[in-house]
Amino acid sequence: MRLSRRLAVGAAIAFAALIALMIIAPSLFTQADPLRTDVTNALASPSSEHFFGTDQSGRDVFARVVYGAQRSVGIGLLATALAFAIGLVAGALSGVAPRPVDALAMRATDVLLAFPEFLIALVVVAILGPGPVNIAIAVTIAAVPVYVRVARAQTRTLVAAEHVEAARILGVPAGLAFTRHVIPGVVGALSVLATIGVGSAILAAAGLSFLGLGPTEPTPEWGLMLAGGRNVLGQAWWISVFPGVAITATVIAVTVIGRSLRARAEGRRN
């Protein structure tokens, strides 16, 4: 791995660790209450007292960015975990199912893959209604087809592998051979995909929140904060810029980590 690539991956891991610490212990970064309003100090510019300034209600933007990581990243992680589990089960079963069942499942998957993930998530939220839980469900449904396709391809490859055939010849029951020798390989492939998918899920969730389909005020959430400052962007740029930077940096960090893991899994040099 080249030095520049190592530095990029190291920086991405460090930033991801910082975000994880914000999620676990936000009080380590700020003692300010993200919900406390102070109209006398509204739209204050960044200073030593308020690192990221204040919003229209006088709330500390830095505190809201820190506490917003719990919801923004949390929704992305939850959606990715659900998509991972559903894709693993559906894809693995499709890989060993009779041909008509497999063909039907793959045609349905192909139809969903023909549409952008964000569009699918938007349609699902329009049906289910707004809210953080429905956003997580919508992002999950939008992401599942990719996991199903990868899990199915990996299952079919591993089922025909020599070590699986050898286990069957030695008398290992088909079900046991499948869970011991096939599923772990599928999980490994999906784990790398999920690392990259977290960034897409965070971005999709933030986009839906920006459109007003996620958490509502005064909940600190990056997409919602981004939308809240758009009408005063010329007067108070910090309200939207800092949560936007948080979203961008987080997505880039997890994507860099995911691509590095995928390169390692494929045996390529970076």
Rank of each mutant, 00 (worst) to 15 (best):
T37F: 07
T37Y: 07
D38S: 14
D38W: 08
D38Y: 08
L43T: 01
A44M: 13
S45W: 10
S47W: 12
S47M: 13
S48Y: 06
S48M: 11
E49Q: 13
H50N: 15
H50G: 09
F51I: 12
F52Y: 10
F52R: 05
F52M: 11
G53W: 00
D55M: 08
S57R: 09
G58R: 09
G58P: 05
R59D: 01
D60M: 07
V61S: 08
V61H: 07
A63I: 00
R64V: 00
V65T: 03
V65R: 01
G68S: 02
Q70G: 02
R71G: 02
S72M: 00
V73Y: 05
G74Q: 01
G74H: 01
I75K: 05
I75E: 06
G76C: 10
L77V: 15
T80F: 09
A81E: 05
L82E: 03
F84I: 11
F84Q: 08
G87E: 04
L93V: 08
S94F: 03
S94D: 03
S94L: 08
G95M: 12
V96K: 07
A97Y: 10
A97R: 10
P98A: 15
R99E: 15
R99Q: 15
A103P: 13
M106K: 06
R107D: 08
R107V: 14
T109D: 06
L112I: 09
A114L: 04
A114H: 04
A114P: 03
A114W: 04
F115P: 02
F115R: 07
P116Q: 05
L119A: 11
I120Q: 06
I120T: 10
I120P: 05
I120R: 05
V125G: 00
I127D: 03
L128T: 04
G131R: 09
N134A: 05
N134I: 02
A136T: 01
I137E: 00
V139A: 13
A143C: 04
V144F: 02
V146C: 00
V146S: 12
V146M: 11
V148E: 00
V150M: 11
A151M: 02
A151L: 03
A153M: 13
A153P: 09
Q154A: 05
T155Y: 11
T155G: 12
V159Q: 12
V159I: 14
V159C: 13
A160E: 14
E162A: 12
V164T: 11
V164K: 04
A166I: 15
A166N: 14
A166R: 15
A167D: 12
A167L: 10
R168P: 01
R168W: 08
R168D: 00
I169T: 15
